[in-house]
């Protein structure tokens, strides 16, 4: 067995991490959201897909998302080490060599794209490849450290999975699938800025230009409010495009109303204990919101199927 030590300088072959460390490189929590939203894209897309192909497509999208996570952790290892939220990740902890994470991410990227192309279609595969590139290069390597608008544009990477799944079914990129993209895309800024408000110190230490550090907490609270308002009409798009019905519409109205209520609290109450609590509540609710919104599209589709079966 080879391992780096004083007697064998330069031998840093890696490969000594635990299975859990490699799993952590895939950002499993982010992956769960990707799998769920992609599953919704598969269900909502018009047309038929073989259940096995659907399963493989989901797996490939999940592995592709995990691969981008590994590439992100490789590139960001220096700033991850400085932030309390990320300092326990495998590379800053020393459990995995940076080069290992890079090759791990590259191999999974190529593997997931190739498998999606072979199992579903090459349009979906190309879309997955573009998404990995967008997250690893455009967001991680370029936008994240250069502009406070990083997550506004970078959020697109996290919003593509339901569109990729849709493309796996139809073989094309349809306007209706853009409505699913837009829900996640418009949700991302208020979600991350709420987090950034109570993790300002972390981002400051690491030199990441998040909006609160660059424009100030007050400006960030204003932006959260306006983005949340802009998100509201987007929530109605699946109904307008005809991919969801009344059940989704009712759920989306309640869920988005609550989101706006929490955003209003962040906007109005800026000081004291309540002022500190607002962004934390909004951040927690925003995670529930996205799961519930996409969950509502599934419930809506199931309700429609039941209605058609008994009507």
């Amino acid at each position: 067995m080879i391992r780096p030590n004083a007697a064998t300088p330069g031998l840093t072959l890696g490969g000594q991490g635990a299975v859990e460390d490699y799993w952590a490189l895939l950002k499993p929590r982010v992956m769960s959201l990707v799998i769920f939203t992609a599953f919704c894209g598969l269900v909502l897309a018009p047309g038929h897909i073989h259940p096995w192909t659907a399963f493989v497509s989901l797996l490939c999208i999940a592995v592709g998302a995990g691969a981008s996570g590994a590439l992100n952790m490789w590139y960001d290892a220096d700033i991850d080490a400085q932030m309390s939220r990320t300092s326990k990740r495998p590379i800053p902890r020393g459990a995995i060599e940076p080069g290992e994470a890079l090759y791990f991410g590259l191999v999974l990227s190529v593997g997931s794209v190739a498998m999606l192309g072979l199992a579903a279609n090459w349009m979906a595969a190309a879309f997955l490849a573009f998404t990995i590139f967008f997250y690893a290069v455009i967001y991680t390597a370029w936008l994240k450290r250069s502009t406070p608008q990083n997550i506004v544009i970078g959020g697109a990477a996290g919003a593509f999975p339901p569109m990729i799944a849709w493309t796996a079914v139809t073989g094309s990129i349809d306007l209706a699938s853009v409505s699913l993209f837009l829900i996640i895309f418009m949700w991302t800024p208020p979600h991350f800025w709420a987090l950034a408000l109570f993790k300002m110190g972390d981002y400051e230490t690491a030199g990441v230009p998040m909006l609160p550090n660059v424009a100030g907490a007050d400006s960030t609270r204003n932006q959260i409010w306006w983005y949340s308002l802009a998100m509201a009409p987007v929530a109605a798009l699946p109904v307008l495009f005809g991919i969801s019905g009344i059940v989704y519409a009712a759920a989306a109205a309640v869920l988005t109303g609550l989101f706006i209520k929490h955003a209003w609290t962040v906007y109005r109450i800026r000081d004291g204990k309540l002022g500190e609590r607002g962004p934390k509540v909004l951040f927690g609710y925003s995670i529930v919101y996205l799961f519930a919104m996409f969950g509502a599209t599934l419930v809506d589709r199931a309700a429609l199927a039941l209605w058609q079966a008994f009507a």
Partner: peptide
């Protein structure tokens, strides 16, 4: 297993193994 079953499904023909 993944590659084997996918091949069988794809041989079934149609778009995305449908």
């Amino acid at each position: 297993l993944l590659v084997f079953v996918t091949t069988i499904v794809r041989l079934g023909g149609g778009p995305a193994g449908a």
